[in-house]
Design a protein around this nucleic acid. Structure first.
Lengths: 220, 220
DNA sequence: CGTAAGTGGAGGTGGTCTCTCAAGTTATGA
DNA sequence: TCATAACTTGAGAGACCACCTCCACTTACG
């Protein structure tokens, strides 16, 4: 891009920042589907300005998430550094979900939207062995059931991600309840479940959640 | 509508059937977002014919699901008829998911899409006490953990629904694995988990699943 | 103060979907 | 048999929406 070409004029540099900040906020809050018109308006600029700085939506997304996309790897490494293998695994699951809850755009990138394919593919390649090791250690310690597989981790993230999305406006922490339930299901034979600390929704909240639910977008 | 007015001409009646059949297939396979143009083409008819029979998408959907929408109530009643309260609850969860997996359109109606609000609201009102009773019985029998709430049921359906959608083309039965995991997490203190009978995806399948994943549609 | 760089936002382009209509076709019963 | 009301058809009208372009205007800076 035009990084080394020539320094941007001061106002242009300021606007670039405004765009990136606005985009970060909007993608985090509403996912990757926000339009560049939205971003421009939220930054207090015209659409043309956004397109002068970033050739396309795609380029903006890549620029924005270039660093953040590796955050998930850091979390897995943190889990592996944990002395207790079971805690290492469960804390990884929890912190990865926290990431998803805090940044919906990042979540959509990591879970597989077509955008930004290369970067994400590389990240996934780096994740696979880390996830496998997290699972292996927890099983070796006798804490994790033997029939749990590393490939289950992304699917659990997907399931809980659905709860994150649906309950965000009403009860943003509700996913922790279902993570706890699933974690109890992951314990090796003989381990005791822990009480659920996050209460269920009441019927009124449930209604609000269901009303806000939207089916996934059409494929193809 | 025009049910008692006057019998349809024979060809019109035949086409009405064709439309309903095509719509049933398409809604089941691809959800409520299919267009009426799709339905018409799939039925081998022109769009105009569809609109002569049904004023709008909405009316077609209502006609189609009028009966089927009560199926979930029947499943809950079946669960309550089960002598073993734990089996009653878990079989209900399983059969409700089977319903979701077999008919994506029905699933979208029941989980809360804006379409067909009245009917669905009534069904939900009938479901609430049944779900509550399923849970109460299982807890009274000492099989279900005490901190599980009836309101958790729709959320579990939502989570597992996400797996159903994502894995349908690759491993249509995979949701059973995660239902089993969750059910193990639901057992009262002291109960033993059962081995997972459905194997995890391999890494290649995982890749296909993730590539097919789509974020939920934008709200508002 | 000249000029290259930057800006704004209306609107072009291309896509989608729902639904209509006028011209042609077919079932039916008198 | 044939008059006619019912039916069929698919192109396209009308709405929407998102991406991106263009150019008259403004601004930074040597």
């Amino acid at each position: 891009m035009s990084t080394a070409d020539r320094p941007l004029r001061r106002d242009a540099e300021r606007n670039r920042r405004l765009i990136l900040d606005a985009a970060r906020d909007l993608f985090a809050a509403r996912g990757l589907t926000v339009t560049l018109d939205d971003v421009a308006h939220h930054a207090g600029l015209g659409v043309g300005t956004v397109y002068r700085r970033f050739r396309s939506r795609e380029e903006l997304i890549n620029t924005l998430f270039e660093e953040r996309i590796g955050a998930i790897v850091a979390l897995a490494e943190e889990g592996l550094a944990c002395a207790d293998p079971w805690l290492g695994l469960t804390r990884f699951l929890e912190s990865a979900l926290e990431l998803q809850a805090a940044d919906r755009g990042l979540k959509e990138l990591l879970l597989g939207t077509s955008e930004g394919r290369d970067h994400v593919a590389r990240i996934k390649a780096r994740m696979a062995p880390l996830g496998t090791e997290l699972v292996r250690r927890a099983q070796a310690a006798g804490a994790l059931r033997e029939d749990f597989a590393p490939q289950d981790i992304p699917l659990l993230q997907m399931m809980l991600g659905a709860v994150v999305d649906a309950t965000q406006p009403v009860r943003p922490e509700l996913w922790r309840r279902y993570l706890a339930l699933i974690i109890d299901g992951m314990r090796a034979d003989g381990a005791r479940p822990e009480p659920l600390t996050v209460p269920a929704v009441d019927f009124k909240q449930l209604d609000a959640v269901m009303r806000a639910w939207r089916p996934p977008q059409r494929r193809e």
